Computed example of a mutant assay.
Amino acid sequence: MELLLHAITDVDARAADEDDTYQPGQVDLLPSSLKLSNEPGPPGAYYGTHTPLPEEGGRTALHVACEREDDDECARDIVRLLLSHRANPNLLWSGHSPLSLSIASGNDLVVKELLTQGADPNLSLTKGLGSALCVACDLTYEHQRSMDSKLALTE
């Protein structure tokens, strides 16, 4: 991997799979449709200024490494190597950032590596995903970790 990284000029090169879906069946939801029983939702103080969504496109090598559900230590080492070559941890593919993909895949070693290397945990995701915290609480990915590790992750 390191030899390849020294040979390429763009560590954030994207695959031509921008139309692929990581999680089939996800529907775009407006934040207002997530309210229960016509409740007003969180107070305005919880909302920051509107920030534009990051560019979305095809998968990068970092996305692929963060999707791995096997050999957590190897995946972490690859992520560390990609980040040391200035891979952008805040690009989106299929609505997901590398951080949200590592949360969905259950690889807490990669989650920690991304957070210590500058991944934005508050990055707005697309396709109704919300943020990395929303992915951590999503029942779709519940099978990836125990309740204790899910609580530790959200903290």
Rank of each mutant, 00 (worst) to 15 (best):
G41V: 04
P43V: 06
H63A: 04
S94V: 02
L99Y: 06
S124R: 15
P52Y: 09
C66V: 09
C137S: 15
L82Q: 11
H50F: 13
S124Y: 06
L53N: 11
A45R: 13
L115D: 02
A61W: 03
P98S: 14
G118H: 09
H96S: 10
T51C: 01
A75T: 02
E55K: 14
H85V: 01
N107G: 04
P121T: 13
E113D: 01
A45M: 12
A87E: 09
W93R: 10
E69G: 15
A61Y: 09
G128K: 06
R59A: 15
L92I: 13
N107C: 11
S100V: 00
L123W: 08
V135R: 02
R76H: 00
V111W: 09
G106K: 04
P89Q: 04
D72S: 14
V64I: 15
R80W: 01
K112F: 01
W93D: 04
G106C: 07
E39Q: 13
N107R: 02
L83N: 05
N88Y: 07
S131G: 07
A45N: 07
C74Q: 13
T60F: 08
V111Y: 07
P98W: 12
L92Q: 12
P121D: 13
P121F: 08
Q117A: 15
D72C: 06
L83Y: 06
E113L: 03
Y46I: 08
D77P: 00
G57M: 06
L83V: 04
G48S: 13
G128A: 03
R86N: 15
A132S: 15
G106L: 08
G58I: 13
T49P: 03
E113P: 01
A61E: 12
L81F: 03
A119F: 10
P89H: 07
K112W: 00
T126R: 15
L82W: 05
R86H: 15
P89A: 04
L53M: 11
L62H: 02
R68F: 05
S84Y: 02
L99W: 10
V64N: 06
P52M: 09
P42G: 04
S105K: 09
L91K: 14
D108Q: 11
G58Q: 12
G106H: 11
G48C: 02
R76Y: 00
G58F: 01
C134K: 08
L99Q: 10
R68Y: 05
R80P: 00
G106S: 06
P43Q: 11
A87C: 07
G44T: 14
L83A: 01
E55L: 14
T49Q: 14
G128M: 09
I78K: 02
A65G: 05
A75V: 02
V110Y: 02
A119K: 06
A75I: 03
V64H: 07
L109E: 14
N90E: 09
T60K: 04
C137Y: 00
G41Y: 08
S84N: 15
T51D: 08
K127Q: 14
I78R: 00
P98M: 12
E69V: 09
P43E: 13
T126C: 07
D77M: 07
D70Q: 12
H96N: 14
R68L: 13
G41Q: 01
P121W: 05
P43C: 08
E56L: 10
S124I: 01
E39G: 12
L81T: 15
C66G: 10
N90D: 14
V79L: 05
H63Y: 05
S94G: 14
P98R: 11
